[in-house]
Computed example of a mutant assay.
Amino acid sequence: MCFGTIQKTIYDSAAAKLPSSQDYRIARDEVAVELPVRVNWGGGWTDTPPHCNERGGAVLNAALKLNGIYPIQIRVKRLEQLHVEFASTDIGASGSVGTVEEIQDCHNPYDSFALHKAALIACGIIPLQGGNLEEICRRLGGGISLSTRVVGIPQGSGLGTSSILSGACVKGLFKFLGRETSEEEIYDIVLNMEQIMSTGGGWQDQVGGLSPGIKFITSMPGIDQKIKVEKVQLSEKMKKELQERFVLVYTGQRRLARNLLRDVVGGYLGGRPESIDALEKMQNLAVLMKFALERENLDAFMDLLNQHWELSKQLDAGSTNTCIEQIFMACEDMIDARFIAGAGGGGFLQMILKKGITKEMLKDRLHEIFQESGVDVWDSTFV
């Protein structure tokens, strides 16, 4: 009943704010958007309903390129035919729809195009109810093809890919329609989109990917989350050292996150003291991490990251497992800080190397111990 009430309240608020497409016209024949992924450092989970609605949220995260590219990619094209085509090329899915009802049916998480459909609704191109697709396309000046792609990243990575993909779709569709939009407006529409899809997630992922650099992101309590983004200003010396010592390691395991959100939020809803205590301290750590980075105190930042890792385990025992603990133990003497990406339980791990240790040295150690299991250092660059 709690989950149902939260979802309905936030969904109703989102639905009431959806824009109308009456004056929309296709302005460009084709638009492409590419975005980075994000790594979370402080305050994760505090951006998730209902915590953010009741107590506000505070998160510190950073945008990353992987293997030298922006891995979140979308393309919007104008079609001569008055219908809508969808593609999710990384999973080899494509199809076309000829009715608004097919697009309005976007609540099934197993639908390959749930995200694509929700983007058209959240941007106001397709109404939440009623309407005729052929008439809408005729007024726009053509049909729409929306294609998405996540390059080279396994599902369940913990790098915020699905929410950042939502952000890329919203950004691309507005460019396609020739609409000038602020970052704040895009954050808001992606939040609405997430509620339309009934995913129940928070706001840190899309902000992490849509806005470059290291960000301190906050919101005040309230149903309508007004997100404030503050760029963390690092000296060139600090940027260089962080880039040299920061490492992203894949565990070789996909995270099974189906009940994860429900478990963590359920602990908060049920008044579990450990959950409430962890979330309160996580917000404080996010503030202290920002301060440490701005003061060029990497040692303090690493200590805070280690504290956050302990709080993550307090919040959810499933954030770690035997594989994760073995990886951390295998390189204990090479690292000063450890953390998970996203909710943990698989996907990527984050480490900060000791001075004098190179990424190649860590890579060799992991290959020696874990061999062909998929455990490996990935090439990552802050953007």
Rank of each mutant, 00 (worst) to 15 (best):
S20L: 12
S157G: 10
H83C: 14
C106N: 13
F301L: 06
G318P: 00
K290T: 12
E244S: 09
L64M: 15
V151K: 12
V170E: 05
V170G: 04
I144C: 06
G158I: 08
C331W: 04
I69D: 09
Q243N: 09
R262A: 14
A286T: 06
I136P: 02
L311E: 11
Y268L: 08
S88N: 12
G178I: 09
M302R: 09
S380H: 10
G201C: 15
H107D: 11
F370H: 05
E310D: 15
T320N: 01
I121M: 14
D23S: 14
V249S: 03
A62V: 12
V37Q: 01
L191D: 03
C169E: 15
Q206C: 02
K240T: 09
E101A: 12
P212L: 14
G56C: 09
T251E: 03
M361H: 12
L260N: 10
R38V: 05
L353F: 01
L293I: 06
M220G: 01
C2Q: 12
R254W: 00
K175N: 13
A93R: 13
I136M: 09
P273A: 13
R138L: 11
L159G: 02
I6A: 05
V150T: 08
H83R: 14
C323T: 13
N297I: 03
E194W: 04
I214H: 05
Q73A: 12
D263L: 12
F3A: 11
Y24A: 03
G124L: 11
A14P: 09
V170N: 08
T99F: 05
E101H: 05
W41Q: 01
G271T: 06
A330R: 06
D29R: 10
Q129W: 04
D316H: 08
V170S: 07
V170Y: 06
V37G: 01
Q81G: 03
K171T: 14
V100G: 01
Q7V: 06
V84Q: 04
A14Q: 10
E85T: 12
A62G: 14
I125W: 05
R365I: 04
Y250L: 01
S182L: 08
A330K: 06
I164V: 15
I153A: 07
K237W: 02
N284Y: 04
P19K: 13
T161K: 09
L305H: 01
T322W: 01
Q204L: 08
L366M: 07
S145Q: 14
I74V: 15
T218E: 15
G43R: 11
K175S: 13
A119N: 02
L191Q: 14
E325M: 07
A58E: 15
N40K: 04
G356M: 10
Q314S: 12
G141H: 11
Y70K: 14
E80V: 11
G344E: 08
G160W: 07
E360R: 10
E85K: 13
A27M: 09
M282Q: 14
Q225M: 09
T89L: 13
W45E: 08
T381W: 00
D379N: 15
E310R: 11
S13P: 05
D105Q: 14
E310Y: 04
E134F: 03
F86H: 09
I103F: 03
A114F: 13
G266V: 07
N61R: 09
S235H: 05
V229N: 08
R365S: 10
K290F: 01
E134C: 02
E241F: 00
D316C: 13
S235V: 00
